[in-house]
C-alpha cells in the first residue's frame, strides 16, 4: 500500500494542526523562541502551517544576556533569513540590580532572569497564548503536561487543575488575564527532533556540533568560558572535543564530550546515548522535583 506515513510526518501534521488552532482561536499568540534546536523545529513547523504566508505571530526571545555569543549571531541572521518578527525581552532592572548566575547561583538567577522575565514579557505584550518547544519526554514532571497548559492570572501552573485533553479538541477558553501555554512538540523525542532536522535540513546553531572548546570542569559539568567567568580554586581551562546537547546560558549549560560534527553523526549518537539530554542543565538537579517547582511558578 502506497499510503504509509512515517512517524515524523505524523508528528509534523499534529504540530501544524496545533499551531493553526492557536492562530485561529487566540487574539495575541506569541512563539517563544529560545534559539535552540527545538525552537528551530518549531519555527519551521510554523512556516509550514501558514505557507505561503508569513508566520502570523511574533517570535519572543527572553534574553538573560548570558546566552552564548554564537546564539545571538545565529538568532539575528536566522530571523532575518525567514522574515519573522522578533521581540526581545530582557529584565533590565534585575540585571542593573545585580542579578547574575555568579552572584545568586543558577536557581535564583533563573527564577528572575528567565521565569520572572518571561511573565513580565507575556504580561506587557498582552499575550494570551505562548507557544513553546517543551517536550513531554524531556523530564518526568512533563510527562503529564497538556498540549494546552492552562495558566492563571499570575502565570502559574497548577498540576491538579489542568483540563482533560481528548482527541485533538483543544479548549482555548480563558478569562481576561489568564493564558495558555501551548506545546506543539509535546509528543516529539530528542531523536525525532534530530531526525527531523536532518530530513528538513533545518539550520541550527554551530554550538550543537563537536569541536575543541576551552572548558573548565565544574560540578561534573563542562562549562565553556564564552566570556570571562570567575574561576574557583583548582579550575584550569582545558581544550576538550565537545558539543552542546541543549543551549542555555553559558555559565549554567554544560557541554558533553562528543565527536559528532554533522547532523547524521548526532542522530547516531542520540540513538545510542544513555543519558537524557537535560542532564547538562544545572537547574534540573537542584532538588528532587525541582522542575515541577519551577513550572508551578511559571517556568517553561
Amino acid at each position: 500500500m502506497a499510503y504509509t506515513w512515517t512517524h515524523l510526518r505524523q508528528l509534523e501534521a499534529e504540530s501544524i494542526y496545533i499551531l493553526r488552532e492557536v492562530a485561529a482561536e487566540f487574539e495575541r499568540p506569541v512563539l517563544l523562541y529560545s534559539v535552540g534546536k527545538d525552537s528551530s523545529v518549531l519555527v519551521r513547523l510554523s512556516q509550514k502551517a501558514f505557507y505561503p504566508r508569513k508566520i502570523p505571530f511574533p517570535l519572543l526571545h527572553v534574553d538573560t544576556t548570558y546566552k552564548f555569543s554564537e546564539m545571538y549571531d545565529f538568532r539575528d541572521s536566522f530571523v532575518k533569513e525567514i522574515g519573522a518578527r522578533l521581540e526581545v525581552y530582557t529584565f533590565e532592572e534585575a540585571i542593573k540590580g545585580g542579578v547574575s548566575p555568579f552572584t545568586l547561583g543558577t536557581q535564583k538567577c533563573c527564577a528572575v532572569l528567565k521565569t520572572q522575565a518571561l511573565l513580565n514579557a507575556l504580561r506587557e505584550g498582552g499575550f494570551d497564548a505562548a507557544v513553546g518547544g517543551a517536550r513531554r519526554e524531556e523530564e518526568k514532571s512533563r510527562a503529564k503536561e497538556r498540549i494546552y497548559s492552562f495558566r492563571d492570572r499570575f502565570g502559574q501552573w497548577d498540576p491538579k487543575n489542568q483540563r482533560p485533553e481528548l482527541w485533538n479538541l483543544y479548549n482555548s477558553r480563558i478569562n481576561k488575564g489568564e493564558s495558555i501555554r501551548v506545546f506543539p512538540l509535546s509528543n516529539w523525542t530528542e531523536l525525532d527532533i534530530w531526525q527531523y532536522i536532518q530530513q528538513e535540513r533545518i539550520h541550527i546553531n554551530s554550538l550543537y556540533f563537536a569541536r575543541e572548546r576551552e572548558v573548565i570542569e565544574r560540578d561534573g559539568q563542562l562549562i565553556m568560558a564564552d566570556r570571562p567567568i570567575p574561576l574557583k580554586d583548582g579550575e584550569i581551562p582545558r581544550r576538550v572535543l565537545c558539543r552542546f546537547r541543549t543551549l542555555g546560558c553559558f555559565p549554567c549549560t554544560g557541554a558533553v564530550r562528543s565527536s559528532a560534527k554533522t547532523v547524521a553523526e548526532i542522530v547516531e549518537e542520540v540513538k545510542v546515548t544513555r543519558y537524557s539530554e537535560r542532564i547538562t542543565r544545572v537547574i534540573d538537579h537542584d532538588a528532587e522535583g525541582s522542575m515541577e517547582e519551577k513550572k508551578r511558578e511559571g517556568y517553561f
Binding site: 504509509t4 506515513w5 512515517t6 512517524h7 515524523l8 505524523q10 508528528l11 531526525q195 532536522i197 536532518q198 530530513q199 535540513r201 533545518i202 539550520h203 556540533f209 560534527k261 554533522t262 547532523v263 547524521a264 553523526e265 542522530v267 547516531e268 540513538k271
Partner: peptide, 16 residues
C-alpha cells in the same frame, strides 16, 4: 550546514 544526506533507516518508522 552539516546535514547528512542519507536518512537513517528508522526515520521511516511509523507510529503506534
Amino acid at each position: 550546514m552539516d546535514n547528512g544526506d542519507v536518512l537513517s533507516h528508522d526515520a521511516r518508522n511509523d507510529l503506534l
